[in-house]
Amino acid sequence: MTPLEQLGVTIPIVQAPMAGVSTPEMAAAVSNAGGLGSIGVGATDAAGALTMVEATRARTDRPFNVNLFVHATAQASPAREQAWLDAMRPLFERFDAEPPTVLRTIYKSFADDDEMLAMLVQAAPPVISFHFGLLAVDRIAALKQAGCVLLATATSLAEARAAEKAGIDMVVAQGWEAGGHRGVFDPAAPDDQLGTMALVRLVVEQTALPVIAAGGIMDGAGIRAALALGAVAAQLGTAFIACPESSADAAYREALAGPGASHTAMTRVISGRPVRCLANRFTEWEASAPAEVPDYPVAYDAGKALNAAAKAAGENGFGAQWAGQGAPLSRTMPAADLVALLTREAMLAA
């Protein structure tokens, strides 16, 4: 069985999961068009994830991908969290708002979520992908026993080798260009910041895993390049944000279509983990932030609260507007039409 047959797709295009942006409507549209649609459930609980899985299944009988976050368990640090809230207070005060009194761990890591694991074993979505790390061996075995094809993000050869050793079926090689959260296993460790081209070739040549290329790919030429490097498919995220099926709000869409798309920044201040987004007032503030960022996703509790306060006052410059370095190549059209266009541009056999 070829890797594409294992994924159950006819064209080598994967729509990135993008928690908070991707929807069952988008995932189903991409899958129905021959690619692999994805939903991101890392920021919800088992009940919310099941609702999304069922909503996707109601719209397609083709395989789709369910993505989860496997980050290290956040370590509470009241002193550090209070210092962070104190540092952010002037930002809240611009909008006549108060920062939260305490910060919460707003969602669990899949590594700690027994209810999520039980639900996924029962629901058995065709494909499951991990971001930020790997599950314990027994959990991986349970999902494989349920018949799920397993993917994991890797930002380095070492992470790809760890995925191979753990029994992961395919690796998503995420280059430095990619929008959204960087999938590093340990955000405190040195990061070689490998670009998509170098990373894909390293993983193709030095592991036996099928590789899905991710990062900066926006059109058919990018897909062809990824396949020429030895990837079995290309994963595109930013390319799908402007589709009507995405849940991106009007401000996000406007920013993506404007001159700001040419300026992305890798930042920790929004969520506590490195993430590439459109440069905005939040990323500008990072240079002068006087405190250490709390753990992910604890810091995200403050980031979400600040964005809500700013939006209520008509300011959209503190949003989590994730985008990769290829953002200026974004095009607005329905997801199925985009898949068809990408297929023609890449000269793929549908």
Rank of each mutant, 00 (worst) to 15 (best):
T51S: 09
T44I: 14
L135W: 03
H131E: 11
T105E: 15
L117N: 06
F69Q: 10
A46Y: 05
N65T: 10
F69L: 15
V137Y: 01
R59I: 07
D61Y: 00
L135V: 04
T105W: 01
P78I: 00
V121P: 03
N65E: 14
A141R: 14
A79I: 10
Y107F: 15
V121Y: 07
F69T: 10
L143D: 06
R94W: 02
C148F: 06
A118S: 14
T60A: 09
A123P: 05
V127C: 11
L150I: 13
P99Q: 08
D112K: 07
T56K: 10
T153N: 11
L85K: 07
A118W: 05
K108F: 08
G48S: 01
K108W: 10
A97I: 00
K144G: 05
D96W: 03
M116N: 06
M119P: 05
A111Q: 09
L103H: 05
S109L: 10
F95Q: 02
T56Q: 09
N65V: 13
D138H: 12
E93K: 13
V149D: 02
Q145M: 11
F64P: 10
T105Q: 14
A124E: 05
D86P: 12
P63M: 02
Q82Y: 00
Q75W: 01
V70C: 15
L103I: 06
R57P: 10
L135K: 01
L120V: 01
P63Y: 05
F95M: 02
R139Y: 01
A79V: 14
V127S: 10
T56D: 08
